[in-house]
Amino acid sequence: MAAGGDHGSPDSYRSPLASRYASPEMCFVFSDRYKFRTWRQLWLWLAEAEQTLGLPITDEQIQEMKSNLENIDFKMAAEEEKRLRHDVMAHVHTFGHCCPKAAGIIHLGATSCYVGDNTDLIILRNALDLLLPKLARVISRLADFAKERASLPTLGFTHFQPAQLTTVGKRCCLWIQDLCMDLQNLKRVRDDLRFRGVKGTTGTQASFLQLFEGDDHKVEQLDKMVTEKAGFKRAFIITGQTYTRKVDIEVLSVLASLGASVHKICTDIRLLANLKEMEEPFEKQQIGSSAMPYKRNPMRSERCCSLARHLMTLVMDPLQTASVQWFERTLDDSANRRICLAEAFLTADTILNTLQNISEGLVVYPKVIERRIRQELPFMATENIIMAMVKAGGSRQDCHEKIRVLSQQAASVVKQEGGDNDLIERIQVDAYFSPIHSQLDHLLDPSSFTGRASQQVQRFLEEEVYPLLKPYESVMKVKAELCL
C-alpha cells in the first residue's frame, strides 16, 4: 500500500493539533497551500530580480507567473513527485505547466533550498508574528487579574506546605514575570531571523556568478533584492546548502521555554482548584465526569500541561538535527523538520489560546482563602504575639514557653481530632496574655502579614508589564474561544 493518505478522510490519521486544537490561522501558515504558494512567490521574486539585473526574462513571463501564483494543481504535483521522487522539481514542473512561456526560467540558477529553506524562514517569521500578540493578550488578562487582587491576602506555599502570606495578585505576578520573559525572547528570536537568500547549491553562489558572467556586484544585488522582497532586513552571508540548523534550535528553545512557563502556571491553577481557592472557567453544560456528576475538573489547565510537556520535548529534535548536518548538509534534517517545526508552533498556539481562555474567566473564592488563612495564621502570628507581650512588660522566655504549650495543644486538636485551630481562643482565655487581649485582632490582621506584596504588584505592572504590552494595544480586544 502506498504511503500517505487522504487526510480529510475519517479513515486516515490526522494530527489532533490540526484537527482538534490549533487555530485556523496557525494551521494555514503550515498548510501545503501556504507552503507551495510561497515557493511560487519566491520563484517570481527571483525572476523579477534577475530581470532587473539584466537576464533575458520578459515582462510577459513575469506576468504569467504572477497570474498563476494561486493556480496550484495539487493532484498534478503529487503525481509528479511520485514520478520524480523530488518535491521541488515536482512543483517546478507543475508551475511550468500553467506558465508555459515562463517554464524555462522558473528556478533559474537556484537549488531546492532556495524555495525550501527560504519558505521555512518566512513561515517561522509569520508563525512567530501570530504567537506574539496571543502571548501579549494572556499577559494582559493576567495583569488585569493581578491588579484587581493585588491586596487580597492568601496563604503562600513553599514545598506545598503553608508559608508566609502573600497576595493573590502577587502570586499571579510570578506567572506574568515568566511570560514577559517569554514574550521578550519570542520577539528577540523573531527579529534575529535572517533570510537564507540566493546562495546556490553549497552556499557559494557559483551558479549565479556564472549567470551574471562573473559580476560579483550583481550577485550581491540579486541576494539583497530577493531578501528585501521577502520582507527581511538581512540575509546570511555564510550558508551551506541550507541555512544553519542552529536557527531551528533557537526558535524551538524559546517555544519550549514558553511551554515550561505555561505548565507551571496551569499546575498552580490545578492545585488551587483542589484547594477550592480558584477555578478555571466551567461552562453551564460542561460535564466533569461521566460517573461523578459533582466533579469540576480543571480540564483546560490539564490540557495545557499535557501539550506543554510535548512542546518542551520537541527542542531535542533540532538539537540532534543540527549535530548531524555533515559538511554542507545531509538530508537527516528533512523529514524531522517537516514534523517538529509545525508541531512546535501548533502546540504553542494551542496552549496560548487555551491559557487566554482560562485567564479571561478565572474565578476566585475569597471566603475559602480566608478560612485557610484562619487555619494557619495563628501559628504564624506567634512571633508577633511574643513581641507584643514583651512590649507590655512580659518575659520573652516565659511567653515563648506559654505559646509553645498552647500551640501544641491547638495542633493536637487540628491533627488528632480534625478540629479547627483554636490557638487564639486559648490565648484569649489565658490570664497571662490579658495585657494584649485587646491587640489580638490587630495582630491577626492578614494584611499585616503580606509585606509589600501589593506595592510590588503595582510597581511591576507599571514599570515592566504595561510598557512591554504597549506595541500590542491594537490587538488586545480579541477574545479566545474554545470549541473543545
Rank of each mutant, 00 (worst) to 15 (best):
A2I: 11
A2M: 15
A3T: 10
A3G: 10
A3V: 12
G4W: 15
G4D: 15
D6E: 15
Y21G: 10
Y21V: 01
M26E: 01
F28Y: 13
D32V: 13
R33Y: 10
Y34Q: 06
K35A: 09
R37M: 15
W39V: 10
L42E: 04
L46F: 07
L46W: 00
Q51Y: 07
G54D: 13
L55A: 01
L55H: 09
Q63L: 12
Q63H: 09
E64V: 13
M65A: 00
K66I: 08
N68L: 07
N68K: 10
L69N: 07
E70I: 13
N71M: 11
D73V: 07
E80N: 12
R83I: 12
R83G: 15
R85N: 01
H86P: 00
D87C: 00
T94H: 12
G96K: 03
P100K: 13
K101G: 13
A102D: 04
A103H: 09
L108M: 12
G109N: 04
T111G: 03
C113M: 06
Y114I: 05
T119K: 02
T119H: 04
T119M: 05
L121T: 10
I122D: 00
N126K: 12
A127K: 01
A127S: 12
P133Y: 15
K134R: 09
L135C: 07
R137P: 13
I139N: 13
R141S: 15
A143D: 04
A146T: 06
K147F: 10
S151V: 10
S151L: 10
T158Q: 00
Q161E: 04
P162K: 00
T166L: 11
T166S: 06
K170F: 05
R171C: 00
C172M: 06
C172D: 05
C172K: 05
C172S: 11
C173R: 01
L174A: 14
L174I: 12
I176H: 03
L183A: 10
V189F: 07
D191E: 14
L193V: 10
R194N: 07
G197N: 00
V198L: 14
T201I: 03
T204W: 01
A206W: 01
L211F: 09
E213L: 15
G214R: 11
G214M: 07
H217N: 13
V219Y: 02
L222G: 03
E228L: 10
E228Q: 10
A230E: 04
G231Y: 08
K233I: 12
R234W: 08
R234K: 11
T239N: 03
T242K: 02
R245V: 01
E250V: 08
A256H: 04
G259S: 10
G259T: 04
V262F: 07
C266K: 04
T267Y: 04
T267N: 10
L275N: 09
M278D: 03
M278W: 08
E279L: 05
P281L: 08
F282L: 12
Q285G: 14
Q286A: 03
I287T: 14
G288I: 06
G288T: 04
S289K: 02
P293A: 15
P293M: 04
Y294Q: 04
K295N: 05
R296Y: 06
N297M: 05
S301M: 13
R303I: 01
C304M: 15
C304W: 03
C305W: 03
S306G: 08
R309A: 06
H310Y: 08
L314A: 12
V315D: 04
D317W: 02
P318S: 09
A322P: 03
V324N: 11
V324H: 09
Q325V: 14
W326F: 15
E328R: 02
D332C: 01
D333H: 05
S334W: 02
N336T: 15
R337D: 03
C340W: 04
A342T: 15
L346F: 14
T347R: 04
T350P: 07
L352I: 14
Q356P: 03
I358K: 09
E360D: 14
L362H: 06
V364H: 05
P366E: 14
K367E: 07
K367I: 05
I369Y: 03
R371W: 02
R372L: 02
I373R: 04
R374Q: 05
Q375G: 05
A381S: 07
I385R: 01
I385W: 04
A388R: 05
A392C: 12
R396T: 04
R396Y: 06
I403E: 06
L406D: 06
Q409M: 11
Q409I: 06
A410V: 05
V413F: 11
Q416M: 14
E417G: 12
D420M: 06
N421M: 09
E425S: 12
R426N: 09
Q428R: 13
Q428E: 11
V429R: 15
V429Y: 07
D430I: 10
A431Y: 06
P435D: 08
I436S: 05
I436A: 04
H437D: 06
S438R: 09
S438I: 14
D441M: 08
L443Y: 05
L444S: 04
L444M: 13
P446S: 07
P446T: 06
S447Q: 13
S448E: 15
T450Q: 05
R452V: 10
Q455M: 10
V457H: 02
L461W: 07
L461F: 07
K470A: 14
P471L: 15
Y472P: 07
S474E: 15
K477S: 11
C483K: 10
